[in-house]
Nucleic acid binder design. Structure first.
Lengths: 202, 202
DNA sequence: GCGGTAACTTACCCTCGGGTCACTTTACGC
DNA sequence: GCGTAAAGTGACCCGAGGGTAAGTTACCGC
């Protein structure tokens, strides 16, 4: 009764604890990368020990996959919805950014899981991440193609490069955002709108 | 005489061997990040063993610092020269890109050392990398300011964001370039010129 | 009340990688 | 030729971190 004891207490149902661990894992994996993240540190963050983490997720890869799927599914869904809605090519980048910011407003590290380069080159994680990237790249390629053909530039390799730069832009915007927790998704979207209008007239 | 023996041969003067190791280290650190890179793997790449690597560089940090300083010095020097030359704000991005591509044409992973997020948060490496980044960010900030004031947009936070996005753009261009070894610095510059003209009319 | 199960821990193993030691072989000056 | 120094190695130590075995506590249904 005094203070909840350290050992053996059924403090929380599994579902809830798993969700906590996925959130903590996403932050830690996003911050330090797969290679740099420590399982004991992730467990410590939610006030639990390593074996419980292993009981629930089996392995480091299992936890990473859980985090990755949550992030990847939400992201691809949000982007797909936005792209499906259509609109002028020059308005699409801002719409997609807005969708991403809204999706990850309270989960800003999630984006990085798809692009973590410290993940082992082969295996389930690499395959799953590559698959999410492939789907997102397809959207980026589509958007870039629409943007470029409207301007008469059709070199397919140029378009590939543009698509990759686009993902890099999103990446750096999110990194910048992570360092400014006070800025919410709406403010971020407004800032991007201002910048795009100012720089490119879009 | 048959085959050079594995042990004890004075195969190469120290200076030359160190240079080899710095090149190999740059590639490995750039590819896998500080945390993911292995000293024995770097030694293996140049056909040598770990103790020699330690004899020459003292520690993993020592080797990383050697790689970082080589990359950072060349980069800041190239960018500083380009920025000092001046010109229209809208031409500067392409000029800087050209300088970076030329500097790192045969050393494409070098750029990543300055932005490696897997280095320990405190210590010599973090300090040195932060210092290089600070100098480069100052140039980016200057360029972004010139670009924006010409357009009447002067929000300093917007300008910060633009500067960070700019480094992200460089980052993704170099990643794309790394995957296409056949494309040299001139071709890369030409591609960027084409894209900027097509997309923004710059 | 009590057995079963779910939540949770302590204490351990093992590999991998940073770092070191003692040693061996070659080149070079004399 | 030979002593010395430089180039280089095999074999080791050790700490960190992924992963596991066995046990402990608390709730829940009966």
């Amino acid at each position: 009764m005094t203070q909840s004891r350290a050992v053996g207490t059924k403090g929380m149902p599994r579902e809830e604890r798993e969700a906590q661990l996925v959130v903590a894992g996403t932050e830690e994996f996003g911050r330090a990368g797969y290679a740099g993240a420590s399982m004991v540190e992730i467990a410590r963050r939610v006030g639990v020990t390593k074996p419980l983490l292993y009981q629930y997720f089996g392995s480091k890869d299992g936890l990473y996959l859980a985090c990755l799927h949550r992030a990847g599914d939400r992201l691809t869904e949000g982007v797909a919805t936005t792209m499906a809605a259509g609109g002028e090519p020059e308005r699409m980048p801002l719409k997609v950014l807005s969708a991403i910011f809204t999706t990850f407003d309270h989960d800003r590290y999630a984006w990085r899981l798809l692009r973590d380069e410290t993940v082992p080159a082969t295996g389930d994680i690499a395959a799953a991440a590559a698959d999410y990237r492939r789907r997102l790249d397809a959207f980026a390629l589509l958007g870039a193609t629409q943007l470029m053909t409207a301007r008469g530039l059709a070199d397919p390799v140029d378009i590939e490069a543009i698509a990759q730069v686009w993902t890099g832009v999103v990446d750096s915007l999110i990194s910048w955002w992570i360092d400014r927790p006070g800025e919410d998704a709406a403010a971020m979207t407004a800032r991007c709108a201002r910048i795009m209008t100012g720089l490119f007239g879009w």
